[in-house]
């Protein structure tokens, strides 16, 4: 899976930081390292950076809290369930989730290009993005102790 991700601050335009009030999510790992913007599923409002229709924007990450929504109450979408047609009714659109690092069970791992996700819309046509997942490779499983991993753009694990 992937419980959070981070992207370098310089890769998030200022207008998005202001529009979505991301200031509180800007953090540092200490030392002289560059600042990052963290997007965690456990955040007060879970959000994800998304490349959609050639624009970088910030969308709601899945559906964590809305019990009355028709959207699946999770932040992740299994590749297998897409193949089985379980999401067909929601008309999912594939999107790219840019990030430099992913977080799994407390372990931060490098993401070379980004992650794959799907975008679906709720009853009010608001976009929600789910991270696509697949069975973990042995490497990923050893590194994070999780049996699912995100679907990577480019080089993965």
């Amino acid at each position: 899976m992937c419980a959070g991700l981070a992207i370098e601050r310089r890769n998030v335009p200022d207008h998005l930081i202001e529009k979505y009030r991301l200031q509180d999510r800007i953090t540092s790992r200490g030392g002289a390292g560059e600042q990052e913007v963290h997007f965690l599923f456990r955040a007060k409002v879970p959000l994800l950076p998304v490349w959609h229709e050639r624009n970088l924007d910030i969308y709601i990450w899945g559906n964590r809290d809305d019990r009355f929504s028709r959207l699946p109450k999770t932040g992740w979408c299994r590749m297998e369930s897409i193949a089985e047609g379980k999401w067909e009714g929601l008309r999912p659109v594939q999107v790219e989730i840019p990030c430099s690092y992913g977080l799994e069970k407390g372990v931060w791992f490098q993401v070379v290009e980004g992650l794959k996700g799907i975008l679906v819309r709720d009853e009010k046509a608001r976009p929600h993005v789910y991270i696509l997942t697949q069975p973990a490779s042995h490497y990923y499983n050893v590194m994070t102790r999780h049996d699912r991993m995100p679907v990577f753009l480019g080089r993965g694990y």
């Binding site: 790992r29 030392g31 002289a32 390292g33 560059e34 490497y139 990923y140 050893v142």
Partner: peptide, 16 residues
């Protein structure tokens, strides 16, 4: 990946 500069980084072996 210049974004790794100044940060605590570990390189993992062939099985993670």
């Amino acid at each position: 990946f210049p974004g790794l500069k100044g940060k605590p980084v570990g390189v993992l072996g062939n099985q993670g």
